[in-house]
Design a protein around this nucleic acid. Structure first.
Lengths: 194, 194
DNA sequence: TCCCTTCTAGGTCACCCGTCCTACTCCCCT
DNA sequence: AGGGGAGTAGGACGGGTGACCTAGAAGGGA
């Protein structure tokens, strides 16, 4: 029998296609072909396209929470956990160079569409933000949220430029720069200049 | 008579709509309504939608070159010119919080669409990149391109998060951080940690 | 005056989209 | 054996899309 139910297979396929092609540019036919189902049958599982988007965002939120929990468990200290975050740029380098950051590009697209799911998608950012802020707070920084946003912004920008220039060396350089910045931030009692 | 020819008015309207709504989500009807023309008449000015996109990118390239030339002329030294770049985040703050960076969001969308105009759009990034790299080089840095990409990446990320969180204070903080980083980069003979 | 270029309005065309309906198959439960 | 729910296939629908055509208005030059 089928190990994963059809509904989940639809969500997985939509997740991947929304990432690679964008939400608006992905049609029911695309998802149907990817899953191997007939087009019209989707109505049984999802009433509208927005319902699929909601399900995809819920899945991404769950996946992200699981990822953060894993880092929380595996990292011996907050600094190592932050390094784990920085290293998604390396781990997902090929995908990021091909399609950008899944979170950033989705939020940007929904903003252009003035879509009602914007707030839900932005919660993906918030997940990383609060998690990073807590790690910095555990390191004794009282400006944890500020540092979290800064690191998040830099990684977003690296993803955007990596997508545009497809430059592997650039990503590697920026990752090293972030690691050096992290070390400097921890060494200083007072906040570093950047 | 009309001060600006119709073709230019179409390009201007498309430029604005592509920025606010995205390229794919903007239809001929949208542009026609914005300009005040009939729908079918577009074929006379532009054969295809891609032709309009090309014209919009050409216009943005020209506008960007003019902006960089203005900074080149007005800035007393390279450091002031780089500060002018940093301050577009303040000057265009409202638009950026509403719709993100025009360059970054366009390149990201064209990447998802696998559109043939990707390379042309990426030249917008290259314009800023080479200009910034030259300013850093004039300041005696031999890693001007690296610094240029870093500053470009950070400003892209700030635009992305500003669009998601609509947080004015965050943008102001990051601008101050960039200014402090610039000052530190100039003071050091050796490259700063970040 | 008449022509000819430039520009415009309005409409048509085929296509694809999201949505929705109905008939059918399969399989579990009684 | 038979009933019923879950899941599927295929197609129909209205609407919007980019693309395209044609008739005609406007205006300057010969």
């Amino acid at each position: 029998m089928d190990p994963t139910p059809t509904r989940q297979r639809i969500i997985d396929a939509a997740d991947d296609l929304f990432y690679r092609q964008g939400f608006e540019h992905t049609s029911f036919a695309d998802i149907a072909a990817s899953v191997g189902l007939s087009r019209g049958n989707f109505y049984y599982h999802f009433k509208t396209k927005d319902d699929i988007l909601d399900a995809v965002i819920v899945k991404r939120l769950a996946d992200t929470r699981a990822l953060l929990d894993q880092w929380e468990f595996a990292g011996r200290n907050p600094a190592d956990r932050i390094r784990a975050f920085i290293h998604i740029l390396i781990a997902n380098q090929a995908k990021i160079m091909a399609h950008g950051c899944p979170v950033g590009t989705l939020c940007a697209e929904l903003s252009k569409l003035d879509h009602g799911a914007q707030d839900q998608a932005n919660r993906l950012f918030t997940l990383f933000r609060t998690w990073l802020a807590r790690q910095f707070a555990l390191l004794g920084r009282d400006d944890g949220d500020d540092l979290a946003l800064h690191l998040l912004a830099l990684s977003q920008g690296v993803a955007t430029l990596a997508n545009a220039f497809r430059d592997k060396a650039f990503v590697d350089r920026e990752v090293r720069r972030m690691e050096a910045w992290l070390d400097a931030s921890l060494a200083d009692a007072t906040p570093a200049p950047i």
